[in-house]
Design a binder for these strands. Structure first.
Lengths: 245, 245
DNA sequence: CACCAGAGTATGGTCTGACCATACTGAGGC
DNA sequence: GCCTCAGTATGGTCAGACCATACTCTGGTG
């Protein structure tokens, strides 16, 4: 750089400058930021520093980068910097204050849909090659998770251990739906689920009914019986959280 | 790299691997992560990619980097990675590769449930004080967003503008369900929705039917008619994405 | 032995320049 | 007019270098 100092803190400076620039230029959601190379020259830092700053802004949901050329390439402003942190962070920070009702409600929504969709897909797989290898993998994973949960929980095993396999099973079913977005959401909710599930299992004491539910869900999906799958999922959550039904 | 491909997505992969490593190695707050150079070699990526991942973890408060040497230098774990957060993060990063089918499927799942639940709650509000002020606020917000979308889209307004209000409307309904988790997920999906919604609106050209759908959804929820609300939501998405129904 | 100064070194921070993958642009040929 | 294909701008990644920092170790000195 031209000056003698300021070799460190370049990244921080860049982050600040980019945000100020968004503010000053009055950029609106959807607008395009200058390219990485231009920004680097403009701010008198290396492209590496610019990239680190942009990557951070990307994970914060402020910009969204896309390679290629044309009006949709480059870093697109997807949210104002001030409100940026919120969406993702608010969720994770506030996660601990969620009520069991909210978590169960969400699980019901996602898992009934997942089981239904997964069953429909396996059902349709009889004719065309409808179920891709990926989803077969997910079903295999579900089988394994189910067996792991069954094998372990004889008596002494901890509730936490059972819940781990339990959650793996339910995530696998979401993956078997063939919708990566739903699966990702389900994975994102793992921690919230775990907290409440451990409580529930400890209160129940016995997991026999829950394991039996797993088998019914699994069987219904493999058989392509969507209504039975939905019913089995509902019953499962009702067994685990009877006070909410 | 040893392999032929996988030149892209290195950063995402690294983020995942580092988090898994923290998990698997049972690192505790205060422990030290391997150096950037070691991580790079271990994960078979360049130091740049490792740095981007670490920088992200740093801004998320998971690690804290310090130059120099000794036990306090390097990347120190300052907080367990809330896997919920990072999964959601990865979700927003990888969102661009999602198909319209996946986004629509997810929207159908969330929005039908939200509308149904919101309607049930307003319906039940006749007797006890069931609908909290928060949810009334959400309904008001939905009303405003709906009106904004109606007012604007005379002719010349951009599809992007309409979609902004459209999404605000749908998020408000998720909030009206009274389940903060579902609402948070819906907010997190805004970006993914926006991309596909803009395409759809531009293809349609006319938003009359969509605005009429909004009114029906809104009215059904206010009337506490859950089946009608679900039906209206389904119809709305079918109008916007006829090719997926 | 106790202490301190200086060389050695490991680490993060930054820079440079290169190549790849992607996706639009536009000139040329049919 | 339409299509093909080279050109080019962009983000993504890589490799290697140097700097700044701060600990560690060595060796001399009292």
């Amino acid at each position: 750089m031209a000056d003698k100092e300021r070799r460190t803190r370049a990244f921080e400076e860049v982050l600040l400058q980019i945000e100020r620039r968004i503010e000053d230029d009055g950029l609106r959601v959807g607008d395009r930021l200058p390219g990485e190379r231009n920004l680097a020259e403009e701010l008198q830092v290396s492209r590496s520093s610019v990239r680190e700053a942009l990557r951070v802004l990307e994970t914060l949901g402020v910009v969204s980068s896309q390679a290629g050329r044309g009006p949709d390439a480059g870093a697109i402003l997807t949210s104002r910097p001030d409100s940026a942190l919120s969406d993702l962070l608010r969720l994770s920070l506030g996660m601990s204050s969620l009520s069991t009702r909210e978590v169960i409600g969400t699980r019901l929504m996602i898992e009934r849909w997942s089981a239904e969709t997964a069953a429909r897909r396996t059902g349709a797989a009889a004719r065309p090659g409808s179920v891709t290898p990926i989803e077969m993998d997910a079903l295999d994973a579900a089988t394994r998770a189910m067996e792991a949960a069954t094998r372990g929980m004889d008596a002494a095993e901890s509730a936490a251990e059972f819940v781990r396999h339990d959650i793996a099973f339910h995530v696998a079913i979401a993956e078997a739906s063939g919708n990566r977005l739903v699966a990702a959401v389900m994975r994102a909710l793992r921690d919230a689920m775990r907290r409440h599930a451990i409580d529930a299992v400890e209160r129940l004491g016995d997991t026999t009914a829950l394991r039996e539910d797993h088998r019914r869900i699994h069987a219904a999906i493999l058989a392509g019986d969507a209504p039975a799958a939905v019913e089995a999922v509902s019953a499962h959550l009702a067994h685990a959280y009877p006070e909410h039904f």
